[in-house]
Computed example of a mutant assay.
Amino acid sequence: MIGTRVREALRGSGLTQAALARSVGLSESALSKSLAGTRTFAALELAEVAERLGVSMHWLVTGEEDPFEVRVVARHSYDNMSRTYSCDPQDDQKALEAVALLYRQAYAA
């Protein structure tokens, strides 16, 4: 249920339900009804909710990770047998921090 996932994302967002409602242009009552499943979200409302909560619309609608989500990774390994990619987030973080440092040094002004 979309309302359940919105509530889940809301808990981790630091926003209150009232603040979320205001930020997407809904009344508190309309948001409450949408969360309870007695009112459906309009597509644009759901897009705004996803943006404010930092989650994908795909996840809000399906409960699954978006298979087409763009991910920035510095390094990855490819397993020919399973045809899957994997990466170590710590390695990525170090590489991305090095790139960020280079940009800061190059464009200090």
Rank of each mutant, 00 (worst) to 15 (best):
residue 1 M to K: 04
residue 100 A to S: 07
residue 84 T to S: 14
residue 6 V to F: 04
residue 70 V to A: 11
residue 84 T to L: 13
residue 86 S to C: 09
residue 66 D to L: 03
residue 43 A to I: 07
residue 10 L to F: 11
residue 23 S to Y: 00
residue 46 L to G: 07
residue 54 G to W: 04
residue 73 V to A: 14
residue 32 S to Y: 09
residue 80 N to C: 02
residue 58 H to L: 01
residue 63 G to T: 05
residue 16 T to Y: 10
residue 42 A to M: 04
residue 28 E to R: 13
residue 47 A to G: 13
residue 98 A to L: 08
residue 35 L to G: 05
residue 39 R to E: 01
residue 90 Q to I: 08
residue 29 S to A: 14
residue 34 S to A: 15
residue 36 A to Q: 11
residue 42 A to W: 00
residue 1 M to G: 07
residue 91 D to V: 09
residue 52 R to M: 02
residue 56 S to F: 05
residue 57 M to H: 07
residue 46 L to D: 10
residue 74 A to G: 12
residue 28 E to G: 14
residue 29 S to W: 01
residue 28 E to Q: 13
residue 78 Y to A: 09
residue 15 L to S: 00
residue 13 S to Q: 06
residue 34 S to T: 05
residue 83 R to M: 08
residue 107 Y to V: 01
residue 12 G to W: 03
residue 71 R to V: 15
residue 109 A to H: 09
residue 35 L to A: 11
residue 48 E to W: 01
residue 9 A to N: 08
residue 50 A to E: 05
residue 58 H to S: 02
residue 24 V to L: 01
residue 18 A to N: 08
residue 32 S to A: 15
residue 59 W to L: 06
residue 68 F to G: 14
residue 9 A to P: 02
residue 46 L to T: 07
residue 8 E to F: 00
residue 99 V to K: 05
residue 106 A to M: 12
residue 22 R to Y: 03
residue 25 G to M: 13
residue 13 S to P: 02
residue 78 Y to I: 07
residue 78 Y to G: 04
residue 97 E to V: 02
